[in-house]
Design a protein around this nucleic acid. Sequence first.
DNA 1: CAGTACAACTAGTACGTACAAGTGCCACGT
DNA 2: ACGTGGCACTTGTACGTACTAGTTGTACTG
Lengths: 360, 360
Amino acid sequence: MGDPGGTGPSVGRGTPVGRPKRPTMSDIAARVGVSQALVSLVFRNQPGASPDTRRRVFQAAEELGYRPDTAAQLLRRTRSRQLGVLFTMRQPHDVGIVEALYPAARNHGYTLVLNAMVDTRDERQAMDELLGLRCEAIITIGTTFERRHLATDVGRPSVVEINPLTRAAGTDVVRTAERNGMRQAVDHLVAQGHRAIAHIDGGAMPGAEERRRGYRAAMRHHGLADHIRVHPGDYTEESGARVARGLLARPELPTAVIAGNDRCAHGLLGTLLRAGVRVPDDVSIVGYDDSQLARLSFIDLTSVRQDAAEAAEVAVRAAAERLDEGRTADRDIVLDPTLVVRGSTGPARTRSTPDGDLLR
Amino acid sequence: MGDPGGTGPSVGRGTPVGRPKRPTMSDIAARVGVSQALVSLVFRNQPGASPDTRRRVFQAAEELGYRPDTAAQLLRRTRSRQLGVLFTMRQPHDVGIVEALYPAARNHGYTLVLNAMVDTRDERQAMDELLGLRCEAIITIGTTFERRHLATDVGRPSVVEINPLTRAAGTDVVRTAERNGMRQAVDHLVAQGHRAIAHIDGGAMPGAEERRRGYRAAMRHHGLADHIRVHPGDYTEESGARVARGLLARPELPTAVIAGNDRCAHGLLGTLLRAGVRVPDDVSIVGYDDSQLARLSFIDLTSVRQDAAEAAEVAVRAAAERLDEGRTADRDIVLDPTLVVRGSTGPARTRSTPDGDLLR
DNA sequence: CAGTACAACTAGTACGTACAAGTGCCACGT
DNA sequence: ACGTGGCACTTGTACGTACTAGTTGTACTG
């Protein structure tokens, strides 16, 4: 703490022990008998070197075990063409987005620099590292991006937020039409005869508030305002499990539950199954994200799909627009989700208890 | 492909559009009225600047929104003190190790550079990026590290492999005493009266072969050679699900199954539960890794714990020994796992079918 | 045959920082 | 008065690459 230089063993502080220094372009140049500048040309694949020379340069590079020095390249280049990615590794859907970012970035001629947010490092620190590496733009995934992290406006990078917690001015946002997604989920359940449809919300997690509102609106639209039940939760399995235990303690289960995300749905599903509740015969469950979890054969979750590849592509394009085309106005990009129906939803059960509700 | 310079829109190729260049140490120096070298001293927290000057430097830095340029630092410094991490984001246990690496690296005065292996990028490419960033050592987690990726021995970085697929010469290895872990798992089950204990192996995944052998040895040790059943699988949920379906199709289930890892156990558990099999009453299940999955209340998996924090700490220390203390001999560090008993294992069921086997 | 165009190259410098080797100044001791 | 030592600071250079502005040599044009 408060030790920018880092604290460590003093032994060997000066030079990595016994490590020969790596070959540079000049070494290659000397070996081939040309200038360093020409070697640089060859590696950048630019005109100005004969085919024969190119071959010899590549061969010498191979023989010497040459690797371009990214630090030097970054320092010298006018553009770094690097995009920083701030993300968490614990949400399967976020991981999917990161994976999709690689090809998307490549398509636009950019390189990614990952920076995971883990408990032991705060957002500020992660951000600093990315900026230190000259990232031209930062893409955040599902994080609380705080604008104050950027000390001043001088040299401030572009920021694109995917599914952000809160929307900040001066940034582009790529988000899902949560209202639409919730509407599809409720429509689907209602079409199957469900009326008592509960929702486990995501509390203060990204997108949770809109999903909550979307759920309420969709329920009202179907004249089911009286059946609105929002159970507080978050985006973890345990929140789903906790709500499940709460529901089991009551005399009557809802016939369907829409979870805040797939992990939450997983916890709900697992806990209900353990308690002998049949899914979807007794209770239908809908998840959110359509992450890999939802697709597992024994989970087989109906889920609101957010297309990770599309979000990634759109986010990179937004960054490219700012960097390459000079756009300065903020963009708010809303992607439409799609309900993917699987085995966790089915027709509403006929209530067996003497209750006023009728089937359908 | 074959376009090292990257292909992208030609617009704005030269300079990020409308972006003022970031402040440097010289800017701070000019503002405070000192030399750039002194500013450098201040940031490195080295002696040679008066308290008053330090304060003014920091203040000017704040006002200008200065951020140190990592590229320039890397280029100039004799040591980068960076460790590259090659990992996959799909195994919860591996994610746990990555998280634990951050504090471990900090303790030894190192910084981490992450590089995720995703389907769209091969190992070779990821490796090159890390080396380009001057990482002094590479830590791989559960990957097939191929030595040929390092073109020559010149400037070759140290490599520490955590749970590698195959052991390569010239690298340090941090691995788990799989035999020991399997022994504990089998001992535990046998103590509960189990005899028909099956194993779903991890196929060609890291550590799988040793776990398989450990299982066989432990079974033989208990005189249960006749009950050895190895079902081929891998480290995914679906492999566990597949084996579950296979088991269900047979007349008799084993009374216990040891899965190759937690994800596999999860698939097994989920599929069995769905089929009405009670766990642990009908079948006991043991996982491997003790990842977050195992700890979920509705999964509650008895699992062989590999301590991620310990593995991370030991791996960083191994790298530091080579880099700071000049060790050159390979080290093979074996960590002992611990069985964590949870609710997925219990006493063996009494067979209800007319079968020669007796209880216990 | 002079002039020109082009391919194939080289020289020189800048990027932002770290580090080695100074320089000036003041307090101190004798 | 003179040296001595330490503090606070500066100068100069190097890191490895990219990019601009040349400089050759050769073939081609009219």
